[in-house]
Design a protein around this nucleic acid. Structure first.
Length: 435
RNA sequence: GUGGGUAUAGCGUAGCUGGUUAACGCGUCAGUUUGUGGCACUGAAGACCAUCGGUUCGAAUCCGAUUAUCCACCCCA
């Protein structure tokens, strides 16, 4: 029988990695809570229509990347992103009738049938927040500062924030007309893709990597010059708010998000990761913006809202690249080193007792020699060891060794052990923090 | 969807233009005698050379297909 393999674009999270995930997730929960966001959990699949209506019929995500199960009455799709389902849940459960703004966040997996690359999986995990009810630029600033705080507190360096405004449907339409006019003049010189874009989504033309197209686009009109009064003021206030919060940014008029629901503010946090050959390349780790029309689009009242999605695999990639570890690789508070059968029993009992107290305790289950056990204790980063042999059993007393400092303390091997160990352990922890 | 690179023990790599027992580092395991780890030394285990097929007297090495992975376009987290 041949070995079955996992589907392309999926990943196993192994025991050596899950601790990092748990730490990251714990940190995300904590930070989101600090900003007043509460967790929401929504289904992994939704009716296909939710995404075609919410994300946008013409987007790549909807047109060619969704995993859809065809049904006789309704088609179902594995969520390609988190916003549509979250907004659907807010509407369906009447949460938008509650005090606004409504602040929610989620950690979930998304599915897109894409060509796989580093940081581009077919099942990937996303942390996202959505804030519904405020049209104020201060809400934009708050959401951006949440993302910023997460990236900063994780200790990441060199993450750039780029912002732009793509206006509201009214001013965007005018801008797109202006773009069409501009590019139509040199239609014949554009690449095939761009000629296509000219009709479907002229804003994408600015993004083209083909040199000749870039040249043509150099003097193209900018969205920022076409914003209506309201959108323009919104953007100016957002910039002022970011400055007040001490958040650095650059305005990048070429940011055009690929999901149709965005209006006004769009932003991205971009980091650098290495490819296989060690060359650095930019990668978006967080992307988001305002989507004032989405809730209406999904059948609700007009409620302005915004949010972002953050790719957890991408985040962990960058953390790894910047050599930032959230966890100790292996961890053990205390390791018992038994010598002889009677000692093995005693070690088992003490281990069991400490584990009930929440202490990470281990003992030998390999029948190893004393020397080998000490080596093992060292490898798993045991903080303390206790050697137990016939002498110790007879005297009811043993030596507790601090593996870092080498310090040895005599302890009693009776019911008082757990208590005295916890005192010593806490003292050691405090001493470590003072260093 | 289109185009290109890579594929050798758990990990990272060597293996030149096809020629016998596939090499090295890290890691793992055991030991370096008498009851205390990190260093050092000695030894061991571990690979049908991604899979399938072809060329050849002979293939890790050449050819084809498949799969995985990486990169570019596209798009995005």
């Amino acid at each position: 029988m041949s070995l079955l393999k996992r589907p392309k674009g999926t990943a196993d999270i192994l025991p050596s990695q899950s601790g990092e995930w748990q730490k990251l997730e714990g940190f995300l929960h904590q930070t989101a809570n600090a900003f007043g966001f509460r967790e929401i959990r929504v289904p992994t699949f939704e009716e296909t229509e939710l995404f075609s209506r919410g994300v946008g019929e013409t987007t790549d995500v909807v047109q060619k990347e969704m995993y859809t199960v065809l049904g006789s009455k309704k088609n179902l799709t594995l969520r390609p992103e988190g916003t549509a389902g979250t907004i659907r849940a807010l509407l369906e459960n009447g949460l938008l009738n509650d005090a606004l703004p409504q602040r929610v966040y989620y950690i979930l997996s998304c599915f897109r049938h894409e060509n796989v690359q580093k940081g581009r999986l077919r099942e990937f995990h996303q942390f996202g927040v959505e804030m519904a009810g405020s049209a104020q630029p201060s809400a934009d600033a708050e959401v951006i500062s949440l993302a910023k705080q997460i990236l900063d507190q994780l200790g990441l360096k060199g993450i750039a924030l780029r912002i732009n405004s793509i206006g509201c449907p009214v001013c965007r339409k005018k801008y797109q007309e202006a773009l069409k006019n501009y590019f139509s003049g040199s239609r014949e010189c554009l690449c095939a893709d761009c000629r296509n874009r000219l009709e479907r989504n002229p804003m994408r033309l600015l993004d083209c990597k083909v040199e000749s197209c870039q040249k043509i686009g150099k003097d193209a009109p900018l969205i920022l010059d076409y914003l209506c009064e309201e959108c323009s003021q919104h953007f100016e206030k957002l910039k002022a708010n970011l400055e007040a919060l001490g958040i650095e940014y650059t305005v990048d008029p070429r940011i055009v998000r690929g999901l149709d629901y965005y209006t006004k503010t769009v932003f991205e946090f971009i980091g650098k990761i290495p490819d296989e050959k060690g060359r650095e390349k930019d990668q978006t780790i967080c992307g988001g913006g305002r989507y004032d029309g989405l809730i209406q689009q999904l059948g609700g009242q007009y409620v302005p809202a915004l949010g972002f999605g953050m790719g957890l695999e991408r985040l962990l990639n960058i953390l790894e690249y910047q050599k930032i570890s959230l966890t100790e690789e292996k961890f053990c508070d205390i390791y018992f080193v038994p010598m002889g059968e009677a000692a093995e029993i005693k070690s088992m009992q003490l281990t069991a007792q400490l584990r009930k107290e929440g202490v990470s305790a281990q003992t030998d289950v390999m029948g190893r020699s004393l020397r080998a056990q000490m080596k093992y204790a060292d490898k798993i980063n045991a903080r303390f060891t206790v050697v137990i042999g016939d002498n110790e059993l007879e005297q009811g007393e043993a030596v507790l060794k601090n593996m870092k400092s080498g310090e040895k303390i005599s302890v009693r091997l009776d019911h008082t052990f757990a208590e005295s160990f916890s005192d010593i352990e806490i003292a050691d922890r405090l001493a470590g923090e003072n260093l």
